[in-house]
Protein backbone atom coordinates (compact mmCIF):
# COMPACT_ATOMS: atom_id res chain seq x y z
CA UNK A 1 0.00 0.00 0.00
CA UNK A 2 1.18 3.50 -0.86
CA UNK A 3 1.84 6.32 1.56
CA UNK A 4 -1.28 7.54 3.42
CA UNK A 5 -2.17 11.21 2.98
CA UNK A 6 -5.37 11.17 5.01
CA UNK A 7 -5.48 9.27 8.29
CA UNK A 8 -8.33 9.44 10.75
CA UNK A 9 -8.49 7.66 14.07
CA UNK A 10 -11.80 7.57 15.95
CA UNK A 11 -12.57 11.05 14.68
CA UNK A 12 -15.70 12.33 16.43
CA UNK A 13 -17.77 15.50 16.34
CA UNK A 14 -20.54 16.18 18.84
CA UNK A 15 -23.03 19.03 18.81
CA UNK A 16 -24.39 18.89 22.36
CA UNK A 17 -25.91 15.42 22.76
CA UNK A 18 -25.94 14.81 19.04
CA UNK A 19 -23.03 12.81 17.68
CA UNK A 20 -22.74 13.91 14.06
CA UNK A 21 -19.63 11.89 13.31
CA UNK A 22 -18.97 8.88 15.52
CA UNK A 23 -15.44 7.49 15.81
CA UNK A 24 -14.63 7.19 12.13
CA UNK A 25 -11.27 5.67 11.25
CA UNK A 26 -9.83 5.20 7.76
CA UNK A 27 -6.81 5.90 5.60
CA UNK A 28 -6.58 7.26 2.11
CA UNK A 29 -3.37 6.86 0.16
CA UNK A 30 -1.71 9.21 -2.31
CA UNK A 31 -3.28 9.32 -5.73
CA UNK A 32 -6.31 7.37 -4.63
CA UNK A 33 -9.85 8.26 -5.63
CA UNK A 34 -11.78 7.85 -2.44
CA UNK A 35 -15.59 7.90 -2.57
CA UNK A 36 -17.26 9.16 0.57
CA UNK A 37 -20.88 8.05 0.48
CA UNK A 38 -23.84 8.30 2.79
CA UNK A 39 -27.45 9.42 2.89
CA UNK A 40 -28.24 13.04 3.76
CA UNK A 41 -27.67 13.58 7.47
CA UNK A 42 -25.30 10.62 7.80
CA UNK A 43 -22.49 12.96 8.87
CA UNK A 44 -20.53 13.31 5.60
CA UNK A 45 -20.43 17.09 5.57
CA UNK A 46 -19.37 17.31 9.21
CA UNK A 47 -16.57 14.81 8.61
CA UNK A 48 -15.41 16.69 5.54
CA UNK A 49 -15.40 20.01 7.40
CA UNK A 50 -13.12 18.53 10.01
CA UNK A 51 -10.79 17.17 7.36
CA UNK A 52 -10.62 20.60 5.66
CA UNK A 53 -9.71 22.35 8.88
CA UNK A 54 -13.00 24.26 9.06
CA UNK A 55 -14.28 22.59 12.20
CA UNK A 56 -12.44 21.28 15.27
CA UNK A 57 -13.10 17.62 16.15
CA UNK A 58 -14.55 16.80 19.57
CA UNK A 59 -12.26 13.81 19.97
CA UNK A 60 -10.13 11.42 17.99
CA UNK A 61 -7.25 12.25 15.67
CA UNK A 62 -6.73 12.99 12.02
CA UNK A 63 -3.85 14.06 9.88
CA UNK A 64 -4.19 15.57 6.43
CA UNK A 65 -1.16 15.66 4.16
CA UNK A 66 0.90 15.06 7.28
CA UNK A 67 -0.67 17.94 9.24
CA UNK A 68 -2.72 17.71 12.40
CA UNK A 69 -6.37 18.84 12.24
CA UNK A 70 -6.21 20.44 15.67
CA UNK A 71 -3.06 22.49 15.44
CA UNK A 72 -2.04 22.85 11.81
CA UNK A 73 -5.18 23.97 10.00
CA UNK A 74 -3.28 26.70 8.17
CA UNK A 75 -0.88 24.20 6.61
CA UNK A 76 -3.77 21.90 5.81
CA UNK A 77 -5.55 24.71 3.95
CA UNK A 78 -2.47 25.38 1.83
CA UNK A 79 -2.25 21.74 0.79
CA UNK A 80 -5.84 21.01 -0.12
CA UNK A 81 -8.21 22.09 -2.82
CA UNK A 82 -11.95 22.27 -2.41
CA UNK A 83 -14.90 22.37 -4.74
CA UNK A 84 -18.51 22.22 -3.69
CA UNK A 85 -21.79 21.37 -5.29
CA UNK A 86 -22.68 25.04 -5.32
CA UNK A 87 -20.86 26.60 -8.20
CA UNK A 88 -17.86 28.17 -6.60
CA UNK A 89 -16.40 30.77 -8.95
CA UNK A 90 -17.38 34.44 -9.28
CA UNK A 91 -19.92 34.80 -12.05
CA UNK A 92 -19.34 38.51 -12.48
CA UNK A 93 -15.63 38.10 -13.07
CA UNK A 94 -14.04 36.80 -16.27
CA UNK A 95 -12.40 33.39 -16.54
CA UNK A 96 -8.97 35.00 -16.34
CA UNK A 97 -9.90 37.17 -13.39
CA UNK A 98 -11.14 34.15 -11.47
CA UNK A 99 -7.91 32.31 -12.14
CA UNK A 100 -5.88 35.34 -11.06
CA UNK A 101 -7.94 35.79 -7.90
CA UNK A 102 -7.81 32.21 -6.69
CA UNK A 103 -4.16 31.86 -7.67
CA UNK A 104 -3.54 35.08 -5.77
CA UNK A 105 -5.18 34.11 -2.51
CA UNK A 106 -3.25 30.85 -2.51
CA UNK A 107 -0.13 32.97 -2.74
CA UNK A 108 1.07 31.90 -6.19
CA UNK A 109 3.50 34.32 -7.83
CA UNK A 110 2.27 36.34 -10.77
CA UNK A 111 4.36 34.62 -13.47
CA UNK A 112 3.27 31.27 -12.06
CA UNK A 113 -0.38 32.28 -12.21
CA UNK A 114 0.05 33.41 -15.79
CA UNK A 115 1.78 30.21 -16.80
CA UNK A 116 -0.71 27.93 -15.03
CA UNK A 117 -3.64 30.01 -16.22
CA UNK A 118 -2.61 29.77 -19.84
CA UNK A 119 -2.18 26.03 -19.61
CA UNK A 120 -5.51 25.63 -17.86
CA UNK A 121 -7.34 27.66 -20.50
CA UNK A 122 -5.65 25.73 -23.28
CA UNK A 123 -6.44 22.35 -21.69
CA UNK A 124 -10.10 23.27 -21.32
CA UNK A 125 -10.25 24.80 -24.78
CA UNK A 126 -11.48 28.10 -23.36
CA UNK A 127 -9.23 30.41 -25.41
CA UNK A 128 -12.23 32.20 -26.89
CA UNK A 129 -13.93 32.61 -23.53
CA UNK A 130 -10.95 33.66 -21.42
CA UNK A 131 -12.10 37.24 -21.26
CA UNK A 132 -15.79 36.51 -20.96
CA UNK A 133 -17.69 36.59 -17.70
CA UNK A 134 -17.91 33.19 -16.09
CA UNK A 135 -21.66 33.66 -15.67
CA UNK A 136 -22.05 33.38 -19.44
CA UNK A 137 -20.52 29.89 -19.66
CA UNK A 138 -22.64 26.72 -19.80
CA UNK A 139 -22.87 24.82 -16.50
CA UNK A 140 -20.72 21.92 -17.65
CA UNK A 141 -17.82 24.20 -18.52
CA UNK A 142 -18.22 26.07 -15.28
CA UNK A 143 -17.86 22.84 -13.32
CA UNK A 144 -14.77 21.81 -15.26
CA UNK A 145 -13.29 25.27 -14.81
CA UNK A 146 -14.17 25.15 -11.15
CA UNK A 147 -12.29 21.87 -10.72
CA UNK A 148 -9.27 23.18 -12.61
CA UNK A 149 -9.19 26.26 -10.39
CA UNK A 150 -9.49 24.08 -7.29
CA UNK A 151 -6.29 22.27 -8.25
CA UNK A 152 -4.50 25.35 -9.60
CA UNK A 153 -2.17 25.57 -6.62
CA UNK A 154 -1.17 21.86 -6.95
CA UNK A 155 -2.77 20.64 -3.73
CA UNK A 156 -1.94 17.17 -2.42
CA UNK A 157 -5.59 16.42 -1.80
CA UNK A 158 -8.72 17.80 -3.40
CA UNK A 159 -12.08 17.56 -1.69
CA UNK A 160 -15.07 17.43 -4.01
CA UNK A 161 -18.45 17.86 -2.38
CA UNK A 162 -21.05 16.46 -4.80
CA UNK A 163 -19.22 18.06 -7.71
CA UNK A 164 -21.49 16.82 -10.47
CA UNK A 165 -24.89 17.84 -9.10
CA UNK A 166 -27.17 18.97 -11.92
CA UNK A 167 -24.70 18.20 -14.71
CA UNK A 168 -25.59 16.13 -17.78
CA UNK A 169 -24.16 12.58 -18.19
CA UNK A 170 -21.74 13.52 -20.98
CA UNK A 171 -20.20 16.34 -18.98
CA UNK A 172 -20.10 14.10 -15.94
CA UNK A 173 -18.09 11.62 -17.91
CA UNK A 174 -15.66 14.32 -19.06
CA UNK A 175 -15.45 15.58 -15.51
CA UNK A 176 -14.45 12.14 -14.30
CA UNK A 177 -11.75 11.98 -16.96
CA UNK A 178 -10.30 15.14 -15.45
CA UNK A 179 -10.43 13.54 -12.02
CA UNK A 180 -8.56 10.49 -13.31
CA UNK A 181 -5.89 12.66 -14.91
CA UNK A 182 -5.39 14.53 -11.65
CA UNK A 183 -5.19 11.26 -9.71
CA UNK A 184 -2.61 9.96 -12.18
CA UNK A 185 -0.47 12.98 -11.36
CA UNK A 186 -0.61 11.95 -7.69
CA UNK A 187 -3.44 14.20 -6.48
CA UNK A 188 -5.59 12.42 -3.94
CA UNK A 189 -9.29 12.77 -4.65
CA UNK A 190 -11.80 12.74 -1.82
CA UNK A 191 -15.25 12.87 -3.34
CA UNK A 192 -18.82 12.72 -2.06
CA UNK A 193 -21.62 11.84 -4.42
CA UNK A 194 -25.17 10.61 -4.60
CA UNK A 195 -24.70 9.03 -8.02
CA UNK A 196 -24.01 5.31 -7.61
CA UNK A 197 -22.55 4.97 -11.10
CA UNK A 198 -19.95 7.52 -10.03
CA UNK A 199 -19.23 5.47 -6.93
CA UNK A 200 -18.15 2.71 -9.29
CA UNK A 201 -15.44 5.01 -10.70
CA UNK A 202 -13.76 5.29 -7.29
CA UNK A 203 -10.84 3.13 -6.20
CA UNK A 204 -12.38 2.62 -2.81
CA UNK A 205 -15.54 3.84 -1.15
CA UNK A 206 -16.77 4.24 2.37
CA UNK A 207 -20.44 4.35 3.24
CA UNK A 208 -21.55 6.28 6.29
CA UNK A 209 -24.73 5.48 8.20
CA UNK A 210 -25.81 7.39 11.31
CA UNK A 211 -22.41 8.96 11.83
CA UNK A 212 -20.40 5.73 11.52
CA UNK A 213 -18.50 4.21 8.62
CA UNK A 214 -20.50 1.03 7.91
CA UNK A 215 -18.52 -0.26 4.97
CA UNK A 216 -15.17 0.52 3.37
CA UNK A 217 -13.72 -1.36 0.42
CA UNK A 218 -13.36 -1.40 -3.35
CA UNK A 219 -16.67 -1.28 -5.20
CA UNK A 220 -16.12 -4.84 -6.45
CA UNK A 221 -15.46 -6.29 -3.00
CA UNK A 222 -18.45 -4.47 -1.56
CA UNK A 223 -20.77 -5.89 -4.21
CA UNK A 224 -19.42 -9.36 -3.59
CA UNK A 225 -19.74 -9.03 0.14
CA UNK A 226 -23.34 -7.87 -0.01
CA UNK A 227 -24.18 -10.25 -2.85
CA UNK A 228 -25.41 -7.31 -4.89
CA UNK A 229 -25.29 -6.71 -8.62
CA UNK A 230 -24.89 -2.92 -8.40
CA UNK A 231 -23.60 -0.31 -5.97
CA UNK A 232 -27.15 0.95 -5.75
CA UNK A 233 -28.20 -2.25 -4.00
CA UNK A 234 -25.21 -2.13 -1.68
CA UNK A 235 -26.02 1.41 -0.69
CA UNK A 236 -29.67 0.62 -0.18
CA UNK A 237 -28.89 -2.45 1.95
CA UNK A 238 -26.80 -0.30 4.27
CA UNK A 239 -28.75 2.94 4.32
CA UNK A 240 -32.07 1.18 4.90
CA UNK A 241 -31.17 0.63 8.55
CA UNK A 242 -30.51 4.33 9.14
CA UNK A 243 -32.30 5.96 12.02
CA UNK A 244 -31.33 9.50 11.09
CA UNK A 245 -32.49 11.20 8.00
CA UNK A 246 -33.07 14.76 7.00
Amino acid sequence: MKEAVITTDKLTKRFGDFVATNEISFEVSRGEIFGFLGANGAGKTTAMRMLCGLSTPSSGNASIAGFDVYRQTEQIKKNIGYMSQKFSLYEDLTVLENIRFFGGIYGLSRPRIREKGEKLIKDLGLEQEAKKLVGALPLGWKQKLSFSVAILHDPQIVFLDEPTGGVDPVTRRQFWNMIYEAADRGVTIFVTTHYMDEAEYCNRISIMVDGRVKALDTPRNLKEHFGAATMDEVFYALARGAKRSE
Binding site: G53, E74, Y82, K86, S88, Y106
Partner: peptide, 13 residues
Protein backbone atom coordinates in the same frame (compact mmCIF):
# COMPACT_ATOMS: atom_id res chain seq x y z
CA UNK B 1 -25.25 32.63 -0.80
CA UNK B 2 -23.29 31.70 -3.90
CA UNK B 3 -20.99 29.36 -2.00
CA UNK B 4 -17.79 31.26 -2.70
CA UNK B 5 -17.47 32.04 1.02
CA UNK B 6 -16.90 28.33 1.65
CA UNK B 7 -14.08 28.33 -0.87
CA UNK B 8 -12.54 31.38 0.77
CA UNK B 9 -12.74 29.77 4.21
CA UNK B 10 -11.08 26.60 2.94
CA UNK B 11 -8.30 28.69 1.42
CA UNK B 12 -5.29 29.80 3.48
CA UNK B 13 -6.59 33.38 3.32
Amino acid sequence: ETGTMEILLVSPF
